[in-house]
Amino acid sequence: MSAMLSVERLTRRYGPGCDRCLASTGPAHGTNSCPHCGTVVACADVSFDVEDGEVLGIVGESGSGKSTVAACLAFDQPPTSGQAFLEGFDGDMLSADAAARRRLRNTRIGIVYQTPQQGLALDVTTGGNVGERLLAADWRHVGRIRARASDLLERTEIPIARIDEEPRAFSGGMRQRVQLAKALASRPSLLILDEPTTGLDVSVQARILDLIQGIQREAGVAMVVISHDLGVIRLLTERTLVMKLGRVVEEGLTDQVLEDPQDAYTQLLVNSAL
């Protein structure tokens, strides 16, 4: 099986950048800020691939650069360097032209953000939020759009009667489920979940995680789950990358990374959680 997504040496810097940025930052230097030019190296040389039906975890503390990886893959941020290849798309998707990127974003890539405001228009109806991706994919039949949105809302346990309500009136957990429904609307090849349950009550978290698992079992998408929560990573993923200060410090089978971590930072992470 070939990789659905293949990421090669993804790097994102904020600042002017200099020749010494990469050599002067990272876990070995205890900082992601270049001492020579002040540039923040949010992530550097991040490489991985994900197959169809596979779930990859990226774990790390805030500031580790894991969300920057998500933002680059969802085209929310342009990378400074590096490439990403999505099966069926010719060439590096990160350097594709704006229209092609938008098309990929609307049809092949779904993302669920930690904060629903990032992924949803709170003043647009729930059906409209879910349907937006379908409209972008040139669906021009309101009845069919609503039927698909209803299916997805049912799947994500939102009462269909609320299809014409604005998510502004919804609880945090419901909003996350609407985000999921929206992300799934165009049957994406790649689903990125950036801290999908952070900030939610434990019981609400559980339902979302159940839902994500069900989706993974049924839809067979390639998923990248980004979380600082090792429980989420253990539950959802089979392979995991550990990031610290913008670099991948460890990667492996999720159970191995969590039960026999090799890197000092991963050991700290695992021990802090227990």
């Binding site: 492996g252 089978l253 159970d255 191995q256 039960e259 026999d260 090799q262």
Partner: peptide
């Protein structure tokens, strides 16, 4: 046993 399963490296 865990090494045989690669749960431990």
């Amino acid at each position: 046993l865990r090494c045989l399963y690669r749960r431990y490296l």
